[in-house]
Every structure is written in C-alpha cells, then in structure tokens.
Computed example of a mutant assay.
Amino acid sequence: MKTIRYAFWGIVALCLIAIGIANRGLVTVRAMPETLSDLLGVSPDIEVPLFVVIFLGVAAGLLIGFLWEWIRESRYRSEMRRRGREADALRQEVGRLKVEKHEGKDEVLALLE
C-alpha cells in the first residue's frame, strides 16, 4: 500500500513539474481593472510566472472548498458531541446503579444476578 501511495504522489509531482515547466512565461496579475486603477491612481499589479497563478488558484479553490465543507458539517459535529456527552452520562449512571444494587452483597451472588 505504501508503494502505491508513493507512486501516486510521484506521478502527481511529475505532473506539477511538467505544468510548471510548460507555463513558466511571465503574466501580469492585476488587483483591479485598468479603468478603475486609472481613476483611483493606484495600480497594484505584479508579474509572476503563469504556473504560480495556476497553483495559487488551485490552492485557493481547495482552501475555500475545505472551509465551506467544515462550516456545512458543523451541525453534525455538534450533534456528535452532544451524543457523546449523553453516552458518557449514561455510562456513569449505569456504573453507579450497579454499585448501589449490589452494595453489601456477596460478589459471587452479585455476578449471578
């Protein structure tokens, strides 16, 4: 299983390297449209290789997706915490009742009941 995992990540790494080599040309990334930047007098733009833009876009998409899913599942996590606390309380109550029922009796007879 480890070999398959390493092979998979090796193939992913090779694909990412190939994408990086194929898209190494510089592109200008602008924070706002030209007309708006001319109007405001601020032009925040940067030149980076295209593969950096692609990888950052994929990373941002993954991060947004994970965050969205974590928020969506919050009600299920809170329900599981509530059920866990309820189960712990019931376990404690059962243990307390076992002790009270067989208190002062012979251990062998208590086990038979």
Score class of each variant (00 low, 15 high):
residue 55 F to W: 04
residue 93 E to N: 01
residue 98 K to W: 01
residue 88 D to W: 02
residue 1 M to D: 05
residue 99 V to C: 04
residue 44 P to W: 04
residue 36 L to H: 03
residue 104 G to Q: 03
residue 64 I to N: 00
residue 99 V to D: 10
residue 26 L to Y: 08
residue 20 G to S: 06
residue 8 F to A: 08
residue 12 V to F: 05
residue 40 L to K: 06
residue 60 A to Q: 11
residue 93 E to D: 12
residue 44 P to T: 03
residue 101 K to V: 15
residue 19 I to Q: 04
residue 58 V to F: 07
residue 67 L to I: 14
residue 18 A to Y: 04
residue 40 L to I: 08
residue 28 T to R: 12
residue 32 M to W: 01
residue 56 L to H: 09
residue 6 Y to R: 13
residue 38 D to P: 02
residue 83 R to D: 14
residue 3 T to Y: 07
residue 76 Y to N: 14
residue 66 F to K: 07
residue 105 K to E: 11
residue 105 K to A: 04
residue 81 R to L: 09
residue 113 E to N: 07
residue 31 A to Y: 12
residue 90 L to I: 09
residue 49 P to Y: 03
residue 91 R to P: 02
residue 72 R to V: 07
residue 31 A to E: 08
residue 64 I to V: 15
residue 109 L to A: 14
residue 85 R to C: 03
residue 20 G to H: 03
residue 48 V to A: 06
residue 56 L to N: 13
residue 98 K to D: 12
residue 6 Y to I: 14
residue 110 A to T: 02
residue 80 M to T: 11
residue 26 L to W: 04
residue 49 P to I: 09
residue 98 K to I: 03
residue 66 F to N: 07
residue 51 F to Q: 02
residue 51 F to R: 00
residue 52 V to H: 02
residue 103 E to L: 14
residue 42 V to W: 13
residue 112 L to T: 03
residue 11 I to E: 12
residue 85 R to E: 15
residue 65 G to Q: 04
residue 108 V to R: 14
residue 13 A to L: 13
residue 25 G to P: 00
residue 113 E to L: 05
residue 69 E to A: 08
residue 94 V to I: 15
residue 104 G to S: 09
residue 98 K to H: 12
residue 7 A to Y: 08
residue 14 L to R: 04
residue 42 V to C: 05
residue 104 G to L: 04
residue 21 I to G: 01
residue 84 G to S: 15
residue 102 H to L: 02
residue 42 V to S: 10
residue 17 I to A: 12
residue 111 L to P: 00
residue 35 T to G: 02
residue 97 L to F: 00
residue 71 I to Y: 14
residue 80 M to C: 02
residue 18 A to P: 00
residue 99 V to R: 15
residue 76 Y to G: 09
residue 51 F to W: 13
residue 53 V to P: 02
residue 61 G to F: 04
residue 64 I to F: 11
residue 99 V to G: 05
residue 55 F to P: 05
residue 54 I to L: 15
residue 24 R to A: 08
residue 13 A to N: 10
residue 60 A to V: 11
residue 8 F to V: 09
residue 40 L to M: 13
residue 105 K to Y: 13
residue 75 R to M: 00
residue 58 V to R: 01
residue 52 V to P: 00
residue 96 R to F: 05
residue 20 G to Q: 07
residue 76 Y to D: 08
residue 100 E to N: 06
residue 10 G to C: 07
residue 46 I to A: 06
residue 31 A to W: 08
residue 57 G to P: 01
residue 73 E to F: 05
residue 49 P to K: 06
residue 90 L to C: 01
residue 35 T to E: 15
residue 97 L to P: 00
residue 25 G to T: 14
residue 30 R to M: 12
residue 31 A to V: 08
residue 88 D to G: 11
residue 19 I to A: 06
residue 43 S to V: 00
